[in-house]
Simulated assay, not measured.
Amino acid sequence: MIDDDENVDDDALAAEWEAMAGDDEDEDVDQDAMAAEWEAMAGDDGDTGGGEGEEDDDGSTPGRVLDQTEIDSLLGFDGDDGSGETTGIHALINSALVSYERLPMMDIIFDRMVRMMSTSLRNFTSDNIEVSLDNITSVRFGDYLNSIPLPAMLSVFRAEEWDNYGLMTIDSSLIYSIVDVLLGGRRGTAAMRIEGRPYTTIEQTLVERMVSVVLKDMCSAFEPLSKVNFVFDRLETNPRFATIARPPNAAVLIKLRVDMEDRGGRLEILFPYATLEPIRELLLQRFMGEKFGRDSIWESHLATELWKANVELNAIMDEETMSLKDVMDLQIGQTLVFNKTPNDEVVIKCGDVPMFSGSIGRAGKHVAIQVRRAAERLATKE
């Protein structure tokens, strides 16, 4: 009896395994069908060659994957080709900024300043110093403060005649180079930079002296265009305390490079557009002394012709207000009595504009008027 039960159990178990094997075969068939479908889809893509705009069976358009070059071009990160122009999203973001190219005189002013600084800093440090102008760009004030590499010193200066402020940034390389040179450091050794410590009072004092030299040269550079006096206000090491304008405000950034043989650094000068507004018309000139909309030759010719022009003058003997009825009742031969006496003044007009006033008299057979004063004085008296 036991053997028969075991045979029954074995038969049931075998049948169960066969059923499971049948399910696996069905799954294999399903997988084969799915693989065939994927191959067919891949074949369709290969036939179309990845073409754009073609629809699938369900009417949808397949998406297109952008490569890295196209993404960089769209975002404006496709590298600098030397033209200085921005593209993509960067161009849209910066489109609200005023380009410094609308202020052509800035190039001339700071080219003069670079030459003056080279001489002044050589005398200040007794070392061979070369100053060069990197570029002049437009930035937002808040973006510039966030981009300043720390540690650095920020010098706030005031333009007295313009009644506003500017900002000068000295990076750490230039600070340590100037301190090293002024304190007698040996040539041929790069300036040492100690991380994690604030600037000492001696370092701040020496940098302040250098800033005073630069501000004096900048005054001389602006002098042919507009006389201005730049006065040192304060020295800060935290950009938050050097805020002189609101973050969205546009500003002109001038980047200078100071080289002392194997040492040196960068010096940046920032002018908010509000600071330059008093001399905006002068900065718009394409060359020094340009006069907008004026031609001295034409002005001289116009003045000469005006002096030769013939002008008709009318002497107003008397004025009286009458009603229209009285005017219509006037008859031929009727006498009008003037209220003027020989001693009263008569107004001479050119059209409706009073020109002169004078006394009436006679010159031969003609009635004459002697001009005594201009009509402006008469109007003021009245």
Rank of each mutant, 00 (worst) to 15 (best):
A303F: 05
M106Y: 07
G364C: 05
Q204R: 09
T304V: 06
S132M: 04
I108E: 09
D127S: 13
A33H: 11
H301I: 12
G53N: 05
K365C: 03
Y144G: 00
G51N: 04
G361Q: 04
Y176K: 11
N128F: 15
D44S: 12
A374L: 14
N94S: 00
S177H: 08
L225F: 08
I244S: 07
E101Y: 03
G188T: 05
F124K: 07
N310W: 05
T304C: 03
G82D: 07
V231E: 13
L330G: 06
R187G: 11
N229D: 14
T48Q: 08
E320Q: 14
S60N: 10
A15C: 03
T119S: 14
T87Y: 00
F222W: 08
L92I: 01
M105Y: 02
I170K: 01
L92E: 02
L97C: 00
E52H: 04
E25T: 10
I244F: 09
D329T: 14
F271M: 11
D171I: 00
D171E: 02
P248N: 05
F338I: 11
T304E: 14
A159P: 00
V156L: 13
L74D: 01
S138Y: 11
L182K: 13
A368F: 11
Q285N: 12
V179K: 05
N310M: 09
E208H: 04
V327E: 01
Q68S: 14
A91Q: 00
E25L: 11
L276A: 12
Q31M: 06
M317C: 09
A374R: 11
L75N: 03
T205M: 12
D326P: 07
C350H: 03
G84C: 08
R246E: 13
A309T: 12
A309L: 07
T169C: 09
A19E: 03
K255N: 07
R112P: 01
G265V: 08
E236W: 01
S296G: 08
I2N: 08
T237S: 14
D295A: 04
S155E: 03
I348W: 07
V211C: 12
S132A: 09
Y199N: 14
H366Q: 09
E18A: 15
I136Q: 05
F230P: 02
P149S: 15
F292Q: 10
I202M: 15
A251P: 03
Q204P: 00
N339D: 15
Y165G: 01
D233A: 13
C350M: 13
E319K: 13
E70H: 02
L74E: 04
I279A: 14
D23C: 02
